[in-house]
């Protein structure tokens, strides 16, 4: 099988690492060769963050390059736009519609572009854009945005509900399990 590429993008501190960890765990139980790659350090301080998840029969490069991602899972609207070049032709962008202003916008040195969803759709990209933050709050915590988005992502995979639940149980602390499972369901069924 040809290697599949999932990019997870967002703002440092949004919980993107848990999402990639969970996805990685699930993929190895399915018998794939898997590589998950991220950059730690400076990028954690509220900067733009990106994680690459690649799986298939044999995966060599740990990173995803321009035009290669089958799916971009984005935690924030501007980040979906920033990494859009990494999407392959005919690929899908799943994004939280939440907008978080970067420092140049806060200081007035730059402007947050408007109607990004329309502009992305105009390129012919499959865009699945929704308010994951509200669903996370509904599940019981704004921090559960990552599970809402993973729930949404699960619709694009053939894995069973049980397989996803096992991966969630292995990845989140027991005391937050119920909130996270609920967040996953809300994202999936929204």
């Amino acid at each position: 099988m040809k290697t599949k590429n999932i990019m997870i993008v967002g703002v440092g501190g949004q919980g993107t690492l848990l999402a990639s960890k969970l996805l990685g765990k699930l993929l190895i139980t399915k018998g794939y060769d898997v590589k998950v790659s991220e950059v730690h350090g400076m990028s954690q301080r509220g900067g733009s963050v990106v994680t690459y998840v690649r799986y298939g029969d044999k995966v060599y490069s740990p990173i995803i390059d321009r035009g290669e991602a089958d799916i971009i899972l984005s935690f924030e609207m501007l980040e979906a736009a920033r990494w859009l070049e990494y999407l392959r032709k005919g690929g899908t962008v799943i994004t939280n519609s939440q907008q978080t202003n970067p420092m140049p916008v806060i200081t007035g040195a730059a402007v947050y572009p408007d109607v990004l969803d329309e502009k992305i759709r105009a390129l012919g990209v499959n865009l699945d854009c929704f308010d994951a933050l509200s669903l996370a709050n509904e599940a019981g915590s704004s921090k559960a945005v990552n599970l809402v988005l993973l729930g949404r992502l699960s619709k694009y995979f053939d894995f069973s509900e049980e397989e996803w639940m096992t991966a969630i149980e292995q990845s989140v602390p027991p005391k937050f399990l119920e909130i996270n499972k609920k967040a996953f369901d809300l994202g999936k069924n929204f």
Partner: peptide, 17 residues
């Protein structure tokens, strides 16, 4: 190399803060 689409948009940087 793979082909890709690009937004004709000025995307503000998001530096670490």
């Amino acid at each position: 190399a793979a082909e890709y689409d690009k937004l004709d948009e000025n995307i503000p940087n998001r530096p670490p803060v």
